[in-house]
């Protein structure tokens, strides 16, 4: 592995190319978060008595709409619900309300991030949540493609084929992961101000704490 040069001088303990790039990414993310944090709107949402609560309530309600529709589709694909309704009908007809729920959930989620950008950027749980969200989205696209390619042969079967059931189970598990990591963002177990191992600081993007440890 090569040696990292100037941009990563703060990270002498980890000066491989790979660590250097992740440190640069963490520094860039933190800079962006601090820029957002300095904006008046961010402070106003965070310090508002009701606005933040309403945004979070809307986030939970739209999560219910999105996940609710998703569960109906996935439970049908698992062969556990709506056995006498064609699988393609369930998937096609519920797609729009599910996507409306998803869009509103993402918008309110971005606003929640905007209200508390620095702590959220340095939250290990938020980072895991975003990764699971990306995996869930990839799974959804792959699942949809697989389903559309084969649905003609099993559309009316109460129990779809194994590969479809596996995709639906993966979808439920990934979204359950998104929900639990979303909830754990509120906990301060791995916040940067805590005394943590270097690897945890790295995973959470605690740039200043990593630099302090490196300089010891």
């Amino acid at each position: 592995m090569g040696v990292c040069l100037a941009p990563c001088d703060n990270f002498k303990r980890t000066n491989t190319d790979e660590d250097c790039h992740s440190s640069m990414l963490n520094e860039w993310l933190l800079s962006l978060a601090r820029f957002l944090d300095a904006q008046n709107w961010s402070t106003q949402i965070h310090e508002s008595i009701y606005l933040y609560a309403w945004i979070e309530t809307t986030h939970v309600l739209t999560l219910m709409v999105f996940l609710g529709m998703l569960f109906v589709i996935d439970l049908r694909m698992l062969g556990l619900a709506f056995p006498n309704v064609r699988a393609s009908v369930i998937a096609e007809r519920l797609d729009r309300p599910m996507m409306i729920g998803l869009a509103l959930m993402v918008i309110t989620g971005v606003l929640l991030y905007y209200a508390i950008p620095v702590r959220t950027t340095q939250s290990l749980w938020f980072r895991i949540k975003i990764m699971l969200f990306v995996f869930a989205a990839i799974n959804a696209f792959a699942f949809r493609a697989r389903m559309q390619a084969s649905v003609g042969s099993w559309d009316t079967d109460p129990k779809p084929p194994r590969h479809i059931r596996m995709g639906a189970a993966a979808s439920i598990l990934l979204w359950a992961g998104v929900v639990v990591t979303g909830r754990t963002i509120a906990y301060d177990w791995f916040d940067c101000h805590k005394e943590l191992p270097y690897a945890m600081y790295w995973a959470a993007g605690c740039v200043d704490e990593m630099a302090a440890l490196a300089s010891e």
């Binding site: 219910m64 996940l67 929900v179």
Partner: peptide, 16 residues
Amino acid sequence: MFHLLGMSILGGMVLV
């Protein structure tokens, strides 16, 4: 998490 998932299942069935 189970509370939220239960709520989502219930909400999904009610909404559909």
